[in-house]
Amino acid sequence: MKKQEVVREYHFSDATLVTKGLEKVAFMERDKPEFEPYGITTELVAVLKDNLNAFAARITDIEALGDQSQAALLKDLKAEELRTALRTIMARVELKYGVNSPKYKKFGTDTLSLQSDAELNITAKRVVRVGTEFLPELTDTGLTATLLEGITTLNDAFTTLLINLKIEIGDRDIEQEDRVEAGNAVYATLMKYTKIGQSIWESTDVSKFNDYIIYNTISGEPEEAPPPTP
């Protein structure tokens, strides 16, 4: 069965989760004697603090996106290098046969600039294969086995970069999901402890009660009431 998409349970940023979480931990350390009767020991608060710090140290999506973008750039540059090399081959083929000949068309490079990565990979293999077949006829236009081997080398490098990009995309998806799950776990513990903090001070100290409030809004602060309609 397909795993359901993990959804973030808090509406504010991860940075806000960390800063507000550490703020609440400081209040819990201050109020340690009041928390202990509820089973929230110093050790449990320390674990929450460690989890918040560990969450803050995780790779962010900005970094993962940067790695993915760099991999995409390298792949695109190699793809263009491969296309340029293929065009040098096809210039020799055109010189020999003309663009309307069946032999030219057998190379299948008419839409080279529009081909997808997968299509480009297949086209490069085909050009090497057909070029090798017609090599004796194309020697006088400058085609050599070395040029065809160069296409294979470029195509292998392009394929490696294409796979690297797929890996970066997959790693980013995994990291995003893991980050949401880790954030949700920290948030759940934080909310549990802060609700206990609210119950401790609800009827005795308004200021300390407010210390344990976390608003699940974009800013983490209470939503402003809309101005009255005139």
Rank of each mutant, 00 (worst) to 15 (best):
T42G: 12
G21F: 02
K49F: 14
K106D: 09
L95R: 13
Y104R: 06
L65E: 13
D67N: 08
K32Q: 11
L44K: 15
L73W: 05
Q68C: 10
N121K: 14
E119Y: 05
E80V: 11
L82E: 02
L77R: 15
F12Q: 02
A64V: 01
F12M: 08
E80A: 09
F107G: 04
F27H: 12
L48R: 02
L73K: 11
V99F: 08
E81W: 01
P37L: 06
R58K: 15
R92A: 12
S13H: 01
Q68M: 13
E5P: 14
T19G: 00
K20Y: 06
L65D: 15
T16R: 07
P37S: 06
V25E: 06
P37N: 06
L52Y: 00
D110M: 07
T42I: 12
N53W: 02
N121A: 12
A54Q: 15
L86A: 08
T19A: 02
D61P: 09
E23G: 09
T60S: 15
S113P: 00
P102H: 09
E29F: 03
K20V: 08
M90N: 09
L74Q: 10
Y10G: 01
G21R: 04
F35S: 04
K103P: 02
I89C: 04
N51K: 11
M28S: 04
K75V: 02
R92V: 00
V47R: 08
T16P: 01
D117H: 13
E94A: 15
K103C: 01
A64R: 08
V25Y: 05
Y38V: 04
S101G: 10
H11W: 05
I122F: 08
A71I: 14
V25L: 08
L95Q: 11
P33R: 01
P33G: 01
V6S: 13
K49H: 15
D31A: 04
N53H: 12
S101V: 10
K20M: 13
I89Q: 03
I40E: 00
S13M: 00
T123P: 07
R87L: 11
E94D: 12
L114S: 14
T111A: 15
S101R: 11
A46K: 15
F55G: 03
E34M: 14
